[in-house]
C-alpha cells in the first residue's frame, strides 16, 4: 500500500471515530456508560492525533486533501464492487481490478475523493 494512502486511511478512520463520538448520541452513551470513556476528552485527543497526521502529508497531497475536506465530510472512501462509496458512481474497470491497487494514491474521477479499493 502506498504510504500516503495508509496515512489518509488512518486519518479517515480517526475522523470516523471522532464523528461518532461527537454526533451519534447512542455511540457516545455507549462509550461513556459501558466503557467509562470520557467522550469530550477523547475527542480532544483524536483532534490532536488527526492534526498531527495531517501535518505529515506532503504539500501536494495535503492541499488536495484540504480541498476535498472543504467539500465533503469523508475525504477517503472505499471502492466496493467497482463503485465509489462517496458518490456511488462506477470507477473505471481497469482501476478497480488493478492487481497493484492501493499502491498508488488515486481519486474518484467524479467526486475527487481519495479511493481505497477493497474486495
Amino acid at each position: 500500500m502506498h504510504p500516503q494512502l495508509e496515512t489518509l486511511l488512518e486519518i479517515q478512520d480517526l475522523k470516523t471515530q471522532r464523528r461518532e463520538l461527537q454526533e451519534t448520541a447512542s455511540e457516545r452513551a455507549m462509550q461513556e456508560e459501558v466503557f467509562n470513556l470520557g467522550a469530550d476528552q477523547a475527542i480532544v485527543q483524536l483532534d490532536e492525533k488527526i492534526a498531527e497526521m495531517e501535518d505529515t502529508l506532503p504539500t501536494l497531497t495535503r492541499n488536495r486533501y484540504n480541498r476535498i475536506a472543504s467539500r465533503y465530510e469523508r475525504v477517503m472512501v472505499p471502492v466496493i464492487g467497482g463503485t465509489c462509496y462517496g458518490c456511488f458512481v462506477s470507477v473505471p474497470t481497469a482501476l478497480s481490478s488493478d492487481a497493484d491497487r492501493n499502491n498508488e494514491v488515486r481519486a474518484c474521477q467524479n467526486c475527487g475523493r481519495f479511493l481505497y479499493l477493497i474486495d
Binding site: 486511511l9 479517515q12 478512520d13 470516523t16 471515530q17 461518532e20 459501558v34 466503557f35 467509562n36 470513556l37 470520557g38 477523547a42 485527543q45 483524536l46 477517503m76 472512501v77 472505499p78 466496493i80 481505497y116 477493497i118 474486495d119
Partner: peptide, 23 residues
C-alpha cells in the same frame, strides 16, 4: 485503547473500532 481501555470488567474486554479496511 489509548483513549481508554475496552476492558469492561468481569474478565471481559471488547476491543472495537470502525475502519475502511473491512466492507
Amino acid at each position: 485503547e489509548n483513549l481508554g481501555s475496552t476492558g469492561i470488567g468481569k474478565g471481559i474486554a471488547i476491543p472495537h473500532c470502525r475502519s475502511l479496511v473491512v466492507n
